[in-house]
Simulated assay, not measured.
Amino acid sequence: MPKYLISFEKDAMDHIPEEDFAEVGAAARAVCQEAEDAGVFVFSDGLSYDDGDVEHAVVDVDAMVIDGPYPESKELIGGIFIVDVPTREAALEWAAKVAVACRCAQDVRKFRGPNAV
C-alpha cells in the first residue's frame, strides 16, 4: 500500500492557548492509537525548534553544513503523521482526524515508494 505524509507547518498551532495543549496532545495520541489499531500507523512526531540546541541543519551538495533551515526555506514542518493506506481518500480521512485533533490544517502528500526513480 502507498504511504502518505500528513504534516503541518511549524507555526500552525500558535493560535492554540497554552492551557489547551494537554487536550490537543491527548487528542493527537488518540488518533495515533486509532491508526495503530487500524493497522495503518507508520510514524508520528513533532519537530523541536525551541529547545535552544541547533538540531536542524542542512548539508549542501558540497558537504557544507548550514545550521538551521536552508536560507531559501519558506516553510518548516511542525509535525508529521505517516500512514500506510490503500487510497488517497483514506489518507484524506486520516488527515481530517489529525486536523481536528491538532486544530490546524494538514498537508497530505503521497510517498513515491521504494521502487520510484
Rank of each mutant, 00 (worst) to 15 (best):
E19Y: 10
G68Q: 02
F8V: 07
A105N: 03
H15Y: 01
A101D: 02
R109S: 11
K10S: 14
L47V: 12
A22S: 14
G39W: 00
V83D: 01
Y4Q: 09
K3L: 03
A57T: 11
F43P: 00
Q33T: 08
E19F: 10
G68C: 13
G52A: 00
H15C: 07
M1A: 12
E23P: 03
E9L: 06
V85T: 04
P2D: 10
A91C: 04
V61I: 15
G68I: 02
I6S: 11
A28N: 13
K110M: 13
I16H: 01
A22W: 04
D11Y: 12
G46P: 00
V65M: 14
L76Y: 05
K74T: 12
T87L: 09
A96F: 03
R109Q: 14
A96W: 07
P71Y: 05
V117I: 11
C102E: 00
A57I: 09
P17L: 09
Y4N: 05
S73N: 08
M13G: 15
E34H: 09
N115W: 01
W94C: 09
E93Y: 02
I77T: 11
V83E: 07
V85Q: 05
S73R: 01
A95L: 06
A12G: 07
I16L: 05
Y70T: 02
V85P: 04
F81Q: 09
M13F: 04
L5A: 15
E55I: 02
D67M: 00
Y70L: 15
S7I: 01
S7M: 14
S7T: 13
Y4D: 12
A57C: 08
T87M: 04
D50H: 12
E19W: 01
D20H: 09
M1R: 08
P17R: 06
W94F: 04
G52K: 01
P114Y: 10
N115P: 00
E23Q: 15
L5E: 13
F111I: 03
E19H: 14
S48G: 05
K3T: 08
A30R: 12
E23K: 13
S44E: 10
R109V: 12
P69V: 02
G79R: 01
